[in-house]
Design a protein around this nucleic acid. Structure first.
Length: 491
RNA sequence: GGCCCGUUGGUCAAGAGGUUAAGACACAAGCCUUUCACGCUUGUAACGGGGGUUCGAUUCCCCCACGGGUCACCA
């Protein structure tokens, strides 16, 4: 096989969403698996909607996910530039050739006229296709229309016949050319349309495989027609299944988080998103679903890409994220979790250097029971702020028993008297008290947990005590004792 | 509406004429445990419908239904 070159070509008209990221990932995986080249190209021919902000967001989301490109913006290669808006002369050359050969023609119909006719056609139940009225205009007619001040577009003259897409995932798909419009190649503002520019670019960038979402399958015959008219050799095509929202409709904003940034901000790890996305539409040969990136690269093939659209469901993503959160290097997780704590006002920004190891110990204790970085911040909150309330169910269960206040007072005194205050010493003291009083350890542990954390769940109790430190523990115990006396006494 | 693609448990998904139709998430139960998680064990749950072809169809063919995509001077 000749050199594999694939590209991901987003338009900078929004953030990188989950579907786009999956398409980018499949291209990236295919390139890496085949030691090919992954090109990032920006399809910014829509001057109305393209924005610099979106462009920056896409680049940063790609980088964050680890989808590094070999050629593209800020990474020059032999086939640049990589922004379509900078390749206008290439399209111009191609269009001149097409016009000279009579394969394309000038059309003077305005957007308004077209829209009107389309509406009309639909109302009458006719297919809303362009009627080709400008295809056979004489020179004189063109000049007259031009004199009216109309800015022409350029359309491709679709030949009769049939066009077949050889799709690597779906097999041969044939379209009758009569169902294809004489579509626009160059807009009246001089910019190329997607179906034109993409063909020129894929060819001039020597793209070997066009891997993209299924929504482009019906566009493909148009692109093949352009390529054939220009005498280009065709790339191989692979249309990967769509990703749908839980209600089976196309993913959109109203379905909640759909952009990569939103997941980043919600505390998801890039490797978890990558792992999850790889499993959406592709399946490994083995049974493991948590797969290191290197293994995904090694196993990836188009042959194992599904044909069926997949519904996007965050449950599994969250589960995968929890896994990576637990496995990842603790220093990295600490670093990543810190901003979430700071955003909640729990820690100062910047964090004083000497507080770091304490923070790391807390996150280490807490990460096992949560699934996202945002949850890490929730689960760790009481280490950094006063307890303002006690879990209601916990209160009913552990604070209502007669004698709890006294029991806690006794425990508090024992803790205060300890020569060393750490997880081991506090646990020993507690077990001794329970034994002496002939009560189960739980009867002592549970109210203590509630008193110092306000919650009924969390890390091991003595881990919490050590992390909190003697002073805080004694304070909170005293406060809880008071609280119980004040609130429970009347009952 | 025309054209195109698709249809295995709630979701992801394996399967390629003969299988007890994998596995994962979620859910339920149990074990572990100071709690909650993790982990482990077990369980519930699927081939859209109808015709063919065949000794035999989830698997091949046709029709229908349903879902999705596309028919832009958006990509």
């Amino acid at each position: 096989m000749s050199k594999v070159r694939v590209r991901f070509a987003p338009s900078p008209t929004g953030s990188l969403h989950i579907g786009g990221a999956r398409t980018a990932l499949f291209n990236w995986l295919f390139a890496r698996h085949n030691q090919g080249t992954f090109v990032l190209r920006i399809d910014d021919t829509d001057t109305e909607r393209s924005t610099e902000l979106s462009y920056q967001e896409i680049l940063s989301a790609m980088r964050w996910l680890g989808l590094d490109w070999d050629e593209g913006p800020q990474k020059d290669g032999a086939y640049g530039p990589y922004l379509q808006s900078q390749r206008l002369d290439l399209y111009r050359q191609a269009i001149d050739q097409l016009l000279a050969d009579g394969k394309a023609y000038l059309c003077y119909c305005t957007a308004e006229e077209l829209a009107e006719r389309r509406k009309q056609a639909q109302a009458e139940g006719r297919p809303p296709m362009y009627d080709r009225r400008c295809r056979y205009l004489t020179r004189a007619e063109q000049e007259r229309l031009q004199a009216e001040g109309r800015q022409p577009v350029v359309r491709l003259a679709i030949p009769d016949g049939v066009t077949t897409v050889h799709d690597l995932i779906r097999g041969d798909v044939t379209f009758d050319n009569s169902t294809i419009d004489d579509f626009i190649l160059i807009k009246s503002n001089g910019m190329p349309t997607y179906n034109f520019a993409t063909v020129i670019d894929d060819y001039t960038m020597a793209i070997s495989h066009v891997i993209r979402a299924e929504e482009h399958l019906s566009n493909t015959p148009k692109q093949i027609l352009v390529a054939q008219t220009l005498g280009y050799q065709l790339p191989a095509y692979a249309h990967v299944p769509m990703i749908l929202a839980p209600d089976r409709s196309k993913l959109s904003k109203r379905h909640g988080a759909t952009s990569v940034e939103e997941y980043r901000d919600a505390g998801y790890l890039p490797e978890a998103i990558i792992n999850y996305l790889a499993l959406l539409g592709w399946s490994p040969e083995g049974e493991e679903e948590i797969i290191p990136l290197e293994d995904i690269v090694a196993d990836f093939s188009l042959a194992r890409v599904a044909k069926t659209a997949a519904i996007y469901d965050t449950k599994k993503l969250t589960w995968i994220n929890g896994h990576y959160l637990r496995e990842a290097d603790i220093d990295r997780i600490t670093r990543l979790a810190l901003p979430f704590l700071q955003a909640k006002g729990l820690l100062p920004d910047p964090l004083p250097e000497q507080d770091y190891s304490h923070l790391r110990a807390i996150i280490e204790a807490v990460r096992d029971r949560v699934k996202t970085l945002a949850e890490v911040a929730d689960a760790a909150s009481y280490f950094f702020t006063e307890i303002t309330s006690y879990d209601e169910k916990g209160v009913r269960k552990h604070f209502t028993k007669p004698g709890v206040a006294e029991l806690l007072e006794e425990a508090r005194a024992a803790l205060a008297a300890l020569p060393d205050f750490n997880a081991q010493s506090t646990e020993e003291a507690y077990r001794k008290i329970a034994e002496q009083k002939g009560i189960s350890t739980g009867q002592l542990f549970h109210p203590t947990r509630l008193a110092v954390s306000g919650r009924t769940m969390g890390p091991g109790l003595f881990e919490i005590l050590e992390l909190l430190g003697r002073e805080t523990v004694l304070e909170r115990l005293a406060k809880a004792i008071d609280w119980i006396k004040n609130n429970m006494a009347t009952n």
